[in-house]
């Protein structure tokens, strides 16, 4: 089932001489449960694409459908809720709120919603992510790897429609990187979680189901590695 569709996305920054076309007509779609990797050189528009898909940055033109809904037809309020419930965002740096502890950071979207935390899911995630002993630590007391695990926990907590990750391992050593990728893959398999990961690391890209290559704001290549779910 098509869960994400992007049509003719254009994103332009600046005006006149300093105009930058970060996205120049991007279109693709993603099936539910797919693990898609987006690769490309720096400045190619990868991050911009992620932000537009995640409802964080409004495109200059083009549309984004998630779960059949036109993301940018919504008002600001609904967009915020969309980000909360439908999207899980993971960044390379600075994912966590410094004043909140591990549990609070993980349950951030739920807290914002004002809903009750699904304790069972929380326990499970803490277990899987190996954060049980560090539940009440602040981000400043965690290593880089541990911080990223908390971000993943946050991204998965609400079981969003799609998880978007921007170079999630860029800041980590090889052992931590492998672990993070492993966790992401597990969530993809176990929960049938749709995953779009931006990476420059080919070894990670090859673990995905499909690779999209972006250059100068356009998709230049698409490669299917394997069938989704395997």
């Amino acid at each position: 089932m098509e869960i994400l569709r992007v049509e003719n996305l254009v994103k332009v920054y600046g005006k006149g001489e300093s105009e930058v076309r970060a996205l120049d007509g991007v279109s693709f779609s993603v099936e539910q449960g797919e693990f898609v990797a987006v690769i490309g050189p720096s400045g190619s528009g990868k991050s911009t694409l992620l932000h537009v898909v995640g409802g964080v940055d409004r495109p200059t033109s083009g549309k984004v459908w998630v779960n059949g809904e036109d993301v940018y037809a919504q008002n600001e309020e609904k967009l915020a809720i969309f980000r909360r419930r439908q999207v899980g965002l993971i960044y390379q740096f600075y994912n966590l709120i410094p004043v909140l502890d591990v549990v609070e950071n993980m349950t951030l979207p739920v807290l914002m919603d004002g809903r009750r935390v699904n304790q069972r899911r929380l326990e499970e995630l803490l277990d899987v992510l190996g954060l049980k002993d560090r539940q009440h630590n602040l981000p400043s007391q965690l290593s880089g790897g541990q911080q990223q695990r908390v971000s993943i926990g946050r991204a998965l907590m609400n079981a969003p429609t799609v998880v978007l990750a921007d170079e999630p391992t860029g800041n980590l050593d090889s052992r931590n990187s492998a672990e993070i990728v492993q966790l992401l893959k597990e969530s993809n398999r176990k929960y049938n979680q749709t995953l779009v990961v931006i990476t420059h690391d080919e070894s990670i890209a090859l673990q995905a189901d499909r690779i999209l290559a972006i250059e100068d704001g356009k998709i230049v290549r698409e490669e299917r590695i394997r069938e989704a779910g395997r």
């Binding site: 600001e76 309020e77 980000r83 965002l89 951030l108 979207p109 914002m112």
Partner: peptide, 13 residues
């Protein structure tokens, strides 16, 4: 940055 992060994760205006 923190505010941007919160907003990106879904904090409304």
């Amino acid at each position: 940055r923190e505010f941007a992060m919160l907003r990106s994760v879904g904090l409304s205006q």
